[in-house]
Simulated scan of single mutants.
Amino acid sequence: MTRTTLGALTAVVLVLGLLGATLAPVAGQTPENETAVDCSFPIEVTDANGATVTVTEEPDDVVVLAPSAAQVMWEIGAQAKVVGMPVRYHTEYLERSTEKTNVVGEKGQPQIETIVGLEPDLVLAPNVVSEDAVEQLRNAGLTVYRFKQAASIADVIEKTRLTGRLVGEYDTAREVSARTQATLDAYRNATAGQDRPTVLYTLGGGYTAGPETFIGDVIDAAGGENVAAAANISEYDVISNEVIVNQDPDWIVVPSGVDVPSGSGINGTTAVQEGQVLRVDRNFMHQAGPRVTHPLEAMATTFHPDAADVSVDSASVRSPVCDADAVTPTEPATETTTTEESVTLETNQTFGTTTDTTATSGPGFGVVAAMLALLAAGAFLRDR
């Protein structure tokens, strides 16, 4: 096990649809350059565990086992189908979510008896959920799809479309994915070729997120240079004050609920001296879901003020349309390894000291989810 992975696991203890287009194809036709996907039931796909998952008919009752999966369901307009979810576990920002049945314990892991008692048609399990829990649910006769780790915004786009297909809301999921892709494209293009400010993302407790993570991809898309790379941190690990001081970050980005780093040398960095500290909503930044576009926009327009004038055109994005005659692959959407939402703090355990107590700033179900997923399933994803 690498030092980075160990760090991520420790941090957890401390601390996801391809392109979707809004242009509707002419009935019976697939637009040029657009592939097709079979949206009819039954649907058969292969999940992160390599299991073949068959959803025989459109589900009426769905249980989601992590905040990121809940966020996707709300964004694609499928919240009415959710009968069980992590309630108040980094999900309070989702309208009327407190009316759902809570299906996780204090550590964010699923309560098997509660879930089985709900008799859901489908259970969506981000990979912060342990393989053992998934098997227990399957042995109880439930249909469970376990997602792979989302290590980029592209993975979130793919995950969104896949979720829509699994729950019978593909067209809406396709539109949401299109907006996400268009936003990603717009800010990547707007910041391309410009000087990239150095950025430190702090998770608290000395931890940071490297470039090979979901958070790292957001920083890159926003036109920032992640200082974690200078410390040879690719995923999640502790970054020393010495490296921070030597790298002298132009910006420090801090999720809500976490203290701004301070101490010997750090107070003398450009970011602190110039007051260039940006707060982002941890639920949106740490949960691998469509709302990641909010911190992406905030960072891009902060690092590059000219990017405030970018135009986001979701109609420019094309992706598979529904076609009952289409032959679609059975492989899962994302292709990374250990944890599903590698950037979603999904446990009530967090990095560092929490100071922000606003309703939407509670620990996300992502980084921790990814980390807990690194802990419990290779988890680090409980915020997710």
Rank of each mutant, 00 (worst) to 15 (best):
T2P: 08
T2L: 04
T10I: 13
A11N: 09
G20L: 11
A21M: 03
L23Q: 07
T30A: 15
E34I: 02
C39N: 10
A51D: 15
T52L: 08
T52A: 13
T54Y: 01
V64H: 07
E75P: 07
I76E: 03
Q79L: 06
K81N: 03
V82L: 06
V83W: 03
Y93M: 08
L94R: 06
E95K: 10
V103W: 02
V104F: 01
G108Y: 06
I112P: 07
E113F: 10
T114W: 02
L124M: 04
L124G: 05
A125K: 03
A133G: 02
G141M: 06
K148I: 05
Q149W: 04
I153R: 02
A154T: 08
E158P: 04
K159S: 15
R174I: 09
E175R: 03
V176K: 01
A178F: 06
R179H: 12
Y187L: 06
A192K: 02
T208W: 01
G210W: 03
G210F: 07
G210R: 02
E212C: 02
F214P: 09
I215V: 15
V218T: 11
A229M: 00
A230T: 07
E235A: 07
Y236G: 06
D237T: 06
I239N: 01
I244E: 05
V245N: 01
D248R: 05
D250T: 10
S256E: 11
G257M: 04
G257L: 07
G257V: 07
G263V: 09
Q273L: 14
Q273S: 13
Q276N: 14
R279L: 10
V280A: 01
H286S: 15
P290C: 08
M299S: 10
F303A: 05
V310D: 02
S311L: 13
V321Y: 10
P329G: 13
T330N: 03
T358S: 11
A359R: 04
A359D: 12
T360D: 15
G364Y: 04
L374N: 12
L375A: 13
